[in-house]
Simulated assay, not measured.
Amino acid sequence: MSFVMHASSSTDLLKQRVDALVMHFARVQRERMQGLPLLNAVLRVEAVGFACANAESASADVAVAVAEGVLITPWFMSLLRLPLDKQAHRDRVGCRAVHAFGLEQFDFIGANDEALGYYETCALFSPMFEFPTQDLARDTALAALREIREGTHSAAPAAAALPTLPAAPAVPARRLFLTGRGA
């Protein structure tokens, strides 16, 4: 089955869906996440680099176009696949599925929200304390997307493409011991 969508209608639909995504996660931050210690207070919800991906068969007879990009929140950064048309979850919440994203294959986990419908995520960073600014988080998201979508010919350019993150603060030995990571 082929999937055809006019460029102007897909651009409008892409913008609407990405705007809804940002509004939803900004609302989650305001209503459910305030006061939790895993929030990086300098960050805000932002959708980065979302573009329409090739249509993909969700079942044998239905083709679904998706928006793919990176979602930055004060508590995580993830690759995200959001169907351009709101979809029912069909018991896929929490299920893993491997999808092509740019030139790579990634393991995504299904999620669902009444406001967005079904979508899939692949974690890049969580929590987000390594990012002292929104600009650094955005630059990292853009560099990751560039690498995933365009690739590189050697390992050296790939390493140079990602911005250098500041060193994480040292974790006290007692905390390492309590979390089972200490010796």
Rank of each mutant, 00 (worst) to 15 (best):
M5F: 03
S8W: 02
L13M: 14
L13F: 00
L13G: 05
K15P: 01
K15E: 14
L21A: 04
L21W: 04
R27T: 14
Q29K: 07
Q34T: 13
Q34E: 14
L36R: 15
P37W: 03
N40L: 02
V42D: 06
E46R: 13
N54L: 09
N54Y: 02
V62T: 15
V62E: 12
A63E: 15
V64Q: 03
V64A: 00
A65L: 13
V66F: 04
E68D: 08
V70H: 00
V70W: 00
I72A: 01
W75I: 07
W75E: 09
S78H: 05
L79Q: 00
L80I: 15
L80E: 02
P83C: 05
P83A: 04
R92K: 11
R92M: 11
G94W: 04
G94L: 04
C95I: 05
A97L: 09
V98D: 12
H99S: 09
A100Q: 15
G102A: 03
E104R: 12
G110D: 07
E114H: 08
E114I: 11
A115Y: 04
Y119A: 02
T121F: 02
A123M: 12
L124M: 12
L124I: 15
M128H: 06
T133R: 06
Q134N: 09
A143G: 10
R146W: 11
H153L: 13
A161G: 03
P163C: 09
P163K: 07
L165F: 09
L176S: 10
L178V: 10
T179A: 08
